[in-house]
Amino acid sequence: MPDLSLATEDWQAIALTARLAAVTLLILFAIGLPLAWWLARTHSRLGSLVSALVAVPLVLPPTVLGFYLLVLLGPQGPVGRLTESLGIGLLPFTFPGLVVASTLFSLPFVVQPLQASFAAVSERMLEVAATLRAGPLDTFWHVVLPLSRPGLLSAAVLGFAHTLGEFGVVLMIGGNIPGRTQVLSIAIYNRVEAFEYAHAHLLAGCLLVFSFIALLALQFINRAVSTTPAMLRGGA
């Protein structure tokens, strides 16, 4: 009978992964909210360009993105030189490096649902808010965000879950340092490599159950929303 309790190393990986997903999600929202709002409202060509750029991680192999990031952030790369001259040091193989990589990699999963729900907020609602003396920021907080609640939830669940599950980018930019950059997906890979299938099962199972529950919750939320469309769109 193999030992099925999690080892310290596994716990470290789980904690690190959760921390990475949480920090990444915060940054994703800080960048994603204004970016998605701008993309939803702009008619400029720059908008299409930025839209395409944001979507690139959807189709690019994660290792490719990781490789370019490694080059960019490394000692010879422009960003690497900048961070070194600022006294931050080099980002690859550190937690901040992982955060940067995860943020870029998960950006479309946050921006796209946000952009779709922002675009569904009618121009009329914004005009109404303005005639009631709400400035642009006020309107964004008190009209746009509440009306976009399903999009916000989707973005949060997808952003978090996607960061949890990534592998390629993390491996390229973070490596495999237990307690520092070794995230759950990589810990699983290690267990498999070492033929520790029982442990691999345990970790993989945790990830599977968590992802499934998150997506299921999202389904229920979206269903609740779609049965009362007038409540969340601008049409009343």
Partner: peptide
């Protein structure tokens, strides 16, 4: 400082 009533009552649905 104005009030505006639109053709279709555009109440905030939330």
């Amino acid at each position: 400082p104005l009030g505006y009533v639109f053709q279709e009552a555009s109440l905030f649905p939330h």
